[in-house]
Design a protein around this nucleic acid. Structure first.
Lengths: 252, 252
DNA sequence: ACCTATTTGTGCGTATGTATA
DNA sequence: TTATACATACGCACAAATAGG
């Protein structure tokens, strides 16, 4: 076919060009979500192409793309350039993004927003460790201990170990069988890290002490001493709060 | 200034139409977020128009709109048709949407995903009520009691009171001073309601009993009996779980 | 290694709805 | 009522990425 731009598209004559259907914004998003639910599409399953969606839903490609972008932000769909669109994991990344933004936007200086997140984390962990203690197997305790050992090694070498810290808390609450818990705690953990980084805070100034706090938790769990475990956990959080408070004073 | 739209901007002739600059997807979103942070824009503050954004960021209108749609899904911006774009509340609505979708998508039948959400709610509330009990004023207790009284009135009339239930839990944890807590609990509450509704579950079959559970909580708090309050709260959750389990059996 | 078809990404022009003045 | 400014929607053309022949 010739590269002709063809006519500037009648516009005026033959007029009317069917009206835009006045679709409420967000309608397409809901329709795509409903399509996934109706077809029982699992995470990773391919979605119809944009062309198919615009035909199925009777909207333009731009509208389809805007809806898909919104769903992508919610991790409900995953878009791969030049390949296709797929059902997403519906993870808690939107929560991470939203909480990070709002914590940074609330330029309170004294880190009150971070303290709120820490409080929620602490209440959750202290409450959950009681239930975890009842179901932890020896193998799972061994795994926790191996993480702590690696922490101690890193601490002696003066290195920090943020990944080990995250791994510890995930391994601690994984055995609960509640998939939401590790994701939620991980989300709060990530928000804390990102905000700390964005504010230029220093890393853990006493990694050896941090490693010991975790050792105390495992020791208490081995002894099936729930109260001790809760106390050790609380002490751990006091340490985090103290660091955050110090940094806030230093910067604010 | 003349309203001249000026030249139609060469497009066809003078060829080549400057290359798209290979902008990674999501880049524009981050730039808009950074713009809000840099300019210290508060929630409700107006954002630059789409035209200004496309000029500032050097991208097309479509790219700007897709980025704004994604940010709207995260409640980071709020778009008002024909009016303008504003900084959003950064609420937890993305969490609600994501959790609702993922709970509905996980067609497990036995409502395991809902049980996970309930467990998180319970751990949070039981853990927090200890801290709340220490700061609750008489006026706040009166407010809680008035909600319970309205529950009882509704219960005697055989009416349900989902809004009062939500109001109770918000009034209970509001005095903590942690703005994240009521939003988080409210998010879980909303997800539970939406999923229940989508699955066609019945409403509370025994509203009078539910009202009494709440009365028990207030009574314990008035007596400064934290353990009793925690027990009453746990009993309340046992009731919710029982209803959910019954509905799951009935439907699944 | 090259080509091609498919699919998503980007840019542009334009018509229309909506709110404000 | 009119005018203006803005967001919303549609359609098209082309760029870029990916998979497969």
């Amino acid at each position: 076919m010739s590269g002709e731009r063809t006519m500037r598209r009648m516009s005026q004559e033959s007029g009317k060009r069917r009206r835009p259907e006045r679709r409420v914004s967000g309608q397409v998003q809901r329709e795509v979500m409903q399509l996934i639910l109706d077809r029982r599409l699992r995470a990773g399953a391919p979605l119809p192409t944009e062309i198919e969606l615009m035909e199925t839903l009777g909207v333009s490609r731009n509208s389809v793309r805007e809806a898909l972008k919104a769903l992508q932000a919610l991790d409900i769909v995953e878009i791969r350039h030049g390949y296709g669109t797929y059902v997403g994991q519906a993870s808690l990344t939107p929560l991470v993004d939203g909480l990070t933004f709002r914590t940074l936007a609330r330029h309170d200086g004294d880190g009150a927003a971070l303290a709120e997140i820490l409080q929620v984390r602490e209440v959750l962990e202290v409450g959950l460790i009681r239930r975890v203690a009842a179901v932890l197997s020896d193998a799972e305790l061994d795994r926790l201990e191996s993480v702590v050992t690696r922490m101690e090694e890193a601490g002696r070498a003066g290195r920090r170990f943020p990944e080990l810290d995250r791994e510890f808390h995930e391994a601690l609450y994984g055995p609960l069988g509640n998939a939401l818990v590790p994701q939620l705690l991980g989300a709060f953990w990530t928000v804390f890290r990102r905000v700390s980084g964005a504010r230029g805070w220093h890393d853990d100034p006493a990694p050896e002490l941090t490693a010991r706090r975790h050792r105390d938790i495992v020791t208490a769990l081995r002894a099936h001493d729930v109260e001790s475990a809760q106390r050790a956990l609380a002490v751990h959080f006091r340490g985090i709060e103290a660091r955050a408070a110090q940094e806030s004073r230093g910067v604010g």
